[in-house]
Design a protein around this nucleic acid. Structure first.
Length: 256
DNA sequence: AACATACGTCCTATTACGTCA
DNA sequence: GGTGACGTAATAGGACGTATG
């Protein structure tokens, strides 16, 4: 059953093709509804987007239209309303995306500058330690005039495990700000690595280890996936997710 | 109870036409 | 006056729910 049924008995002739043309022409005699009709239909649509059959008949009678015409008007109205709704939602999502993208960008820049600042500070500290060691080292050489290789090895070992001392050979950072660990004893030992990381946190975030943990949790994933433009663009947006992320956890405020 | 059929409504895509720049 | 873009009433056809035999 098609929806043109209500016109068919009055309009159909023996030839289906010509009768259809006649019907359409006839239907288009009164092409547009009057302003009054539209106004009433709009008012009804605002209160309910779907009409009960009884209301449809009543409204049609009031407006001097066929119930079918009222039904079709509501159908078309729903379709237009839906596409408008989609457009609005798209614009909101687009706006949210743009905001997040720019926030992410500035956060990335801020992190980059902090990393380079950290590098500079490390270099300065390294240089200072080197100077101190040279100064103290000369005196030690005089005191330990006999070369004791065993004690030298012990010293090296101690330095590798010494938590408080900043080891020059470990102060290299890669592009992500990770330490370039060079101590053999730590390469494949996770427990030692954890302890080492804790030491690092103590060194650089002294008194703020918790914040350091948060930072690691937040910044590291951003490094691994969000910096990839493919992953970033492939992100499937979801209004509820966006609302959730923007209202409940303003992660970009972590730094402020 | 399970099934087929008719009927009404919805949705989406499309058509036909009026209007306007 | 011709024309293309746009808005809108209406149609086509498929999907779904409900009533009935």
């Amino acid at each position: 059953m098609t929806e043109g049924g209500e016109y068919s008995s009055a309009m159909m002739s023996s030839d289906p093709f010509t009768s259809m043309k006649k019907m359409k022409k006839s239907n288009h005699n009164q092409r547009r509804f009057s302003d009054e009709q539209i106004k009433s239909l709009e008012m009804m649509f605002e209160s309910e987007t779907r009409l009960e059959p009884r209301k449809k008949v009543q409204l049609a009678r009031e407006l001097g239209l066929q119930p079918r015409q009222v039904a079709i008007w509501f159908q078309n109205k729903r379709a237009r309303w839906k596409s408008k709704q989609l457009e609005t939602e798209y614009n909101i999502l687009r706006q949210n995306y743009d905001n997040l993208a720019s926030q992410f960008d500035s956060l990335k820049k801020e992190k980059q500058s902090l990393v380079s600042e950290l590098q500079k500070l490390n270099e300065a500290m390294h240089q200072k330690k080197e100077e101190e060691r040279q100064c103290c080292g000369d005196q030690a050489v005089v005191a330990l005039s006999s070369t004791d290789h065993e004690s030298e090895n012990e010293e090296n070992h101690r330095r590798c495990h010494e938590p408080e001392e900043v080891r020059p050979e470990m102060e290299m950072y890669d592009e992500k700000g990770h330490h370039g660990v060079s101590c053999d004893h730590h390469d494949h030992d996770h427990e030692d690595e954890d302890g080492y990381n804790n030491n690092i946190k103590r060194e650089y975030f002294g008194g703020f280890e918790e914040e350091a943990d948060q930072l690691m949790n937040i910044v590291e994933p951003a490094d691994s996936c969000l910096t990839s433009s493919d992953d970033w663009r492939g992100f499937k947006s979801d209004t509820s997710l966006l609302h959730q992320s923007s209202s409940n956890y303003p992660w970009w405020d972590f730094w402020s």
